[in-house]
Design a binder for these strands. Structure first.
Lengths: 220, 220
DNA sequence: GCATACTTGTAACTATTGTTACGATATTCA
DNA sequence: TGAATATCGTAACAATAGTTACAAGTATGC
């Protein structure tokens, strides 16, 4: 085990690491070799001191007077997040959203391999989605256990979301990314990430309404 | 101005309100009329005391011994978030993801009306996406200003994301929901929400790797 | 080799957020 | 009516996160 990894890391740190990684990969593509925390801060909208402190939770990766070596830091963060090896996913729901996810290159590029696409609609079974042939959802448990798949993506109507989640969990899935608007519930050992566009919009709307209020108040 | 609305509301509160609203709407559909904070807490995975305190930032909506009246609370939260009236959106990018967004009913149901779908690919212009005809992206500024659109959704490849965002901002868009993997940058008065599935997966992966470590440690 | 400029790592401090505990109020039922 | 039960609103407390400031280390130029 490398460095000073404490028992508990604040959640905020873990949320920021992927953002750092994103920017570092971009810089590497542009041919940069080192980067100081100040620049990383500009590109991610994070206070430079916070970046430095976030990283020291896992070890000392920087060089004083210079900054961080990009290649090294990329490796380190990938190792911390566990994205230094590929992960297999299954996708349930081959409608429009499912089709978009199945043919999205970004996942493969970043180490997420789709092991299967499933649907319960017989008219869709046998069709293609991305590189894969759509299978009936009843085959999901076998694929998950045979290929030791850990990640499940839900892209079905909200009424079916919980049912699909339960099937995934029973099959051994450990991480669920839920794109339906229903909030999916799962036992503690399963990590669920609900991504509902309406919820995200509502969240930002508040700030929109508030900035209008300020504008009105200012003009009075 | 209703109740005890302080100058500053913690961001966490604003993030949780849409989740409460989601659950409340669901309960209302099921015919419930009141709900205690304890049940709301179960359904949203939030500590009941926190729910009560979150709500008191805006006023006193509950009734001791009974709970919250669902219809009233729905109205109040919608008013707080500004979703008590419809909002117009534009969508740029009519690929697979754009098509999925354009034909997603959930947005319309919850008060978000799509005012236009745009793409820069001439072969897509004139085709249909959901109920709308795809227009060339050069028409976006006119539509935004004529219909006073405030929300823009980006569903284009990451290389084009910033360019589209800049166009939206110049046209007067105030809220951007970005589905590309590029982190979009904007001036302070524009609210950006970046939704990158890879970032969300990486975030959850960390906890996956960690629970494996614990399992390994326990078996030693 | 030494002064100067730069950048990290981290201690101390401040602000924010979340939790526990309990008094106040409403309802139910004998 | 009065006792028992349910539930909110909120004060006090605890935990967490973020910021500022600076010493320690590294590189550069003369």
């Amino acid at each position: 085990m490398s460095g000073s990894q404490n028992n508990h890391i604040p959640e905020g740190v873990i949320e920021r690491l992927p953002a750092y990684l994103n920017v570092l990969l971009q810089l590497r593509r542009e041919g940069e070799s080192t980067v100081p925390s100040a620049r990383l801060g500009e590109l991610t909208n994070v206070n430079p001191a916070q970046i430095r402190r976030d990283l020291t939770h896992f070890g000392q990766f920087g060089k004083r007077g210079v900054g961080y070596d990009i290649a090294t830091l990329v490796e380190q963060i990938q190792h911390i997040l566990g994205s230094d090896h590929a992960h297999r996913m299954v996708l349930v729901g081959a409608g429009r959203l499912g089709a978009a996810i199945a043919s999205y290159d970004g996942l493969k590029v970043r180490g997420f391999a789709l092991a299967g696409v499933f649907d319960n609609d017989p008219s869709r079974v046998g069709q293609r989605a991305g590189d894969l042939v759509i299978r009936h959802v009843s085959e999901l448990p076998r694929v998950v256990s045979e290929q030791r798949v850990q990640i499940g993506v839900i892209a079905v109507p909200s009424t079916a979301a919980q049912e699909v989640a339960d099937l995934m969990i029973a099959s051994g899935i450990r991480v669920i990314l839920n794109y339906s608007s229903a909030m999916v519930r799962a036992p503690g050992h399963v990590i669920v990430h609900n991504t509902d566009p309406v919820r995200e919009l509502l969240h930002t709307l508040y700030y929109l309404a508030k900035s209008d209020e300020i504008a009105v108040a200012a003009s009075e």
